[in-house]
């Protein structure tokens, strides 16, 4: 079964292994980093990639590879944290609005509409600025962006599920509403939410890097991929490897998440099965 999935969905398999590798590398950063990511080395400022420093050093002589490994913890942490918060709150709101309908639905959806009226990055910038620049606040700002997305998806799928015969059947059997929602509706909408979550993770990673790039993310010496890229931009002509390696890392991770989302939706959608 697993082997068949891998051979028929090579993109999904590649994406999943890349993400697995990045996650492991982030978790094991203190063990596998060749250098201390914060250690200055005056002798080796802005040296290009070499056997010692595989990805070169930055303007303080800090090892770029180690910085990216540690940066992964912040970047992935912010992305996962924000999507986690947005998913749990957004999906709850969406299921409740979709299942009960009426006034609750109306009020909740109007609030969601207001959040939707902001261009996403603009809202994130404003929230991150007003909460004060830090990794945690960037995560909160990004969570607010994705909340309405999950709420809408959860609401529309709940509307479809709760009108299906099985949902009506359990209702006629006298099940309590909370039980119907928790035991019957939620398990049936998780696949849709999972696809949405992997796409949201990719976008969250991009948003986090954009906020950090603008200086609204983690503050130095802590650095995420986006802030490393932003740092490198100043010295672009002198040390392009800093910008390029950070940029490539972000792109690979985002690409893998997009491919995971695509792969999952193909795998879970029976119509597209070949």
């Amino acid at each position: 079964m697993i082997r068949r999935t891998i051979t028929s969905h090579p993109g999904l398999a590649i994406a999943a292994s890349v993400l697995f590798a990045i996650t492991i590398a982030a978790l094991l950063a203190p063990l596998i980093s060749p250098f201390d990511p914060l250690a200055f080395d005056r002798e080796r400022r802005l040296t290009g990639p070499s056997a010692d420093h595989l990805l070169g050093t930055d303007r303080y002589g800090r090892d770029q590879l180690s910085r990216l490994l540690y940066g992964a913890r912040i970047s992935l942490g912010v992305a996962a944290g924000s999507v986690g918060v947005a998913l749990s709150i957004g999906a709850t709101v969406g299921v409740i609005a979709g299942y009960f309908g009426g006034k609750i639905d109306h009020v909740l959806m109007r609030i969601i509409d207001v959040l939707f009226a902001f261009p996403p990055l603009l809202l994130a910038i404003m929230l991150a600025a007003s909460l004060g620049p830090s990794a945690r606040n960037a995560a909160l700002a990004i969570a607010v962006i994705f909340l309405p997305v999950f709420a809408r998806v959860a609401r529309s799928t709940t509307l479809i599920e709760s009108s299906k015969p099985y949902a009506e059947a359990v209702q006629l059997m006298g099940a309590r509403k909370t039980r119907i929602m928790g035991r019957h509706i939620v398990p049936n909408i998780t696949t849709v939410l999972a696809v949405q979550a992997s796409i949201a993770l990719a976008q969250a990673l991009l948003l986090e890097s954009a906020l950090s790039f603008l200086g609204l993310g983690p503050q130095p010496p802590a650095a995420s991929w986006g802030s490393i890229l932003g740092d490198g931009r100043v010295l672009l002509g002198l040390a392009p490897w800093v910008t390029i390696s950070a940029g490539a890392t972000i792109t690979i991770a985002v690409l893998a998440l997009f491919m995971l989302g695509d792969g999952l939706s193909n795998l879970l959608d029976p119509r597209s099965r070949r």
Binding site: A202, L206, S209, A210, F213, G226, L229, R233, L236, G237, P240, T243, I244, G247, I250, T251, V254, L255, F258, M259, D262
Partner: peptide, 18 residues
């Protein structure tokens, strides 16, 4: 298309400058 969506716009802009 995936590449286009995955590469951050500020990276493209920076590389174009470079």
């Amino acid at each position: 298309a995936l590449l286009g969506a995955a590469i951050p716009v500020y990276l493209t802009a920076t590389l174009v400058l470079l």
